[in-house]
Computed example of a mutant assay.
Amino acid sequence: MADDIFRTLSDSVLASPQIQVEDVARARDQGVTLIVNNRPDGESPDDPQGPEIKAAATAAGLDYVAIPVTHSGFSMPQVDAMADALSGAQGKVLAYCRSGTRSTLLWAMARAKQGESPDAIAEAAAAAGYDVTPVRATMNALAAQAND
């Protein structure tokens, strides 16, 4: 995979399109301690599935969590699971899906739920090449709840 495939969302979070087993060691070398798989197994049978990436992560000494997001959308349990994963990580987090978009949108909602400014989140996502417009209303609502 090209070096620029890991896109920086924040100092501690990277998003990526589908990773390969050999990308796990490179992620570790960049300070990643947790890989978050936002892709459901079987979505693309030709790509590495969760168990393969989990095995590579474990072998590299990294934590791994699966929070699959299907094309049917996001749920609050997924947002909560992402927020928990982000807050519990002891280093950088690499979240991936088919293109990195679902990972970025889930990260954006988790950060908003934790009270971060939706404008700052949107700017960070845009700088990484992602658009959070599809979840912006949800981000605004989550941030408003967090900051009440």
Rank of each mutant, 00 (worst) to 15 (best):
M82C: 12
G50Y: 01
Q78I: 09
A143P: 05
A143G: 09
M82G: 11
R28C: 06
V24G: 07
A89F: 01
P134N: 11
E22V: 08
D4L: 15
V79S: 14
P48E: 10
T33Y: 07
G61S: 09
T70Q: 07
S99C: 04
T101A: 15
I53D: 07
D47Q: 13
S16D: 07
L86P: 11
S12D: 12
E116F: 11
T104Q: 05
V79R: 03
A122F: 05
V21L: 12
N140D: 15
A124I: 06
V69F: 03
L14W: 10
Q30D: 11
Q18N: 11
A141C: 01
R7H: 14
Y64P: 09
P68R: 08
S72N: 12
F6A: 00
M76C: 06
R39F: 00
Q114P: 04
T33C: 00
K54T: 14
D23W: 01
A25T: 04
D11F: 03
Q114L: 12
A126W: 01
R102M: 09
L86V: 13
D3F: 11
P77V: 10
N37I: 02
V135I: 09
G61L: 07
T70V: 02
L34W: 00
A146H: 06
S87L: 03
T104N: 03
D41T: 10
A108H: 04
A15C: 10
A127Y: 08
H71T: 15
A144F: 05
I19T: 10
A146K: 11
A128L: 02
I35W: 01
Y64I: 10
I35Q: 06
A83Y: 00
N140P: 02
Q90M: 01
S44P: 01
R102I: 09
A128D: 09
A81F: 00
H71Q: 13
P68E: 06
V79P: 05
A66L: 06
A124G: 15
A59C: 06
L94R: 09
A59P: 05
V93F: 04
T33I: 02
K92C: 01
P45E: 14
N140R: 10
V132P: 04
A110Q: 07
D29E: 15
G88V: 07
R7Y: 03
A125G: 14
S44A: 12
M109K: 12
P77K: 12
A108E: 06
Q78A: 14
D11C: 11
M82N: 02
V79E: 08
N37H: 08
A55I: 02
Q90T: 12
D148E: 15
V32M: 03
M1W: 09
T33G: 09
L62W: 07
F74W: 08
D29H: 10
A27L: 04
P17W: 00
P40Y: 03
L106R: 06
G91I: 07
A126N: 09
S10Q: 08
A127R: 15
L106M: 13
V135G: 03
Q20L: 14
G42Q: 09
S99R: 05
A124Q: 14
L34R: 07
T133C: 03
D119A: 15
Q78K: 09
P134T: 11
Q30H: 12
G129N: 10
A60T: 01
R136T: 13
Q78D: 12
S44F: 08
L62D: 02
A66E: 15
A128G: 14
T8F: 02
S72T: 14
A81R: 04
G88W: 00
H71P: 04
A112S: 14
A126K: 14
R111W: 05
K113I: 01
